[in-house]
């Protein structure tokens, strides 16, 4: 049996010259080579480059000096800002998004309101970026001159946080609505006939059942805010507050001064944080699918 492990895939993505004998079942896996090759070059290779460059200095040898800058006070403050912005907007987004999901889930599954909110969520969660910053600028920014003007529009974290919440809520709806839909009517009715009140249903049944999905969603939203770049780039171009901005700055200056691996080190830090968060998300998600299918 030909067994491919993930590490092998990265190491030998395209084995040219070997004629894939697709009809032989031993070699059937070679049918996935184009896919594996593509993913190897454009996903695994760049990730590998980041990790490699982060721990190699300009001399070419191992050098953890750059990595240790992750603990320097200036770099740390970017991570702290990032974590603060992500934590606030993920919790707010999750709570508000859960309320909205509940309102959507209790409606007609084929209804127009559900479709509008789902399509709108899809757009605003994935698509926003630069546009959202413009939209808020014109609504409450200092130059709006039209509607309400918020003096704190350019303050961190509340100004940018508001815009983040604007795309976090739709993402919450997208990831949390399936869990809401998974709450079976029988559970509510069983609780009711056994003598439970509405409050007791949420306290003992609905709440505990949705808790893993909710926590998982908070983690996903956290990762989402942590890695967002477009919105904050369009919001403010003078000051770097968060890690993605700093990566952007480091990357732009690298074009001039080659082989300064500041961007790689910051990216490594991001990978580490996001990996932890997403592992938590995956574990919670597994429990959710078992309960709420």
């Amino acid at each position: 049996m030909a067994v491919t492990t993930p590490s092998e895939v990265g190491a030998q993505p395209v084995r040219a010259g070997r004629r894939p004998l697709l009809s032989s079942s031993r070699l059937a896996w070679t049918g996935t080579l184009p896919f594996l090759g593509y993913v190897g070059v454009f996903l695994l290779l760049p990730t590998g480059i980041v990790l490699w460059d982060a721990v190699h200095g300009s001399s070419g040898g191992f050098d953890f000096g750059a990595v240790s800058t992750l603990w320097s006070s200036s770099t740390r403050s970017y991570f702290v800002n990032s974590a603060e912005l992500s934590a606030i907007t993920s919790v707010l987004g999750a709570v508000l998004g859960a309320v909205l999901s509940y309102a959507v889930a209790t409606g007609n599954p084929e209804g127009l309101i559900r479709r509008l909110y789902l399509a709108g969520s899809g757009v605003l969660a994935q698509f926003g970026g630069v546009t959202l910053a413009f939209a808020f600028l014109i609504t409450i920014g200092p130059t709006s001159g039209l509607l309400l003007h918020a003096g704190w529009f350019y303050d961190f974290p509340q100004g940018i946080g508001l815009i983040y919440v604007y795309f976090q809520i739709p993402l919450m709806v997208l990831v949390f609505l399936p869990a809401m839909d998974g709450l079976k009517a029988q559970w509510r009715e069983a609780t009711e006939t056994l003598g439970g009140s509405a409050w007791q249903f949420w306290r003992y049944v609905g709440g505990p059942l949705l808790a893993p999905a909710f926590l998982g969603a908070v983690l996903l939203l956290f990762a989402n805010a942590l890695s967002a770049f477009a919105t904050i780039a369009a919001w403010e171009n003078q000051i770097s507050y968060v890690v993605p901005q700093q990566i952007g700055t480091a990357l732009s200056s690298e074009v001039g001064l080659s082989s300064v691996n500041q961007a790689d080190v910051l990216a490594l830090g991001m990978i580490a944080v996001v990996a932890v968060v997403m592992t938590g998300y995956t574990l919670l998600q597994r429990r959710t699918t078992r309960w709420l299918r």
Partner: peptide, 28 residues
């Protein structure tokens, strides 16, 4: 038997944000 592997690879970009990917993509 490759289902899990292909699925994991496809979902990986959710874990490696664009802002990280772009750093490694620059030399490519």
């Amino acid at each position: 038997w490759m289902t899990r592997l292909v699925e994991a690879l496809c979902l990986l970009p959710l874990t490696i944000p664009a802002i990280v990917l772009v750093v490694g993509l620059a030399p490519i």
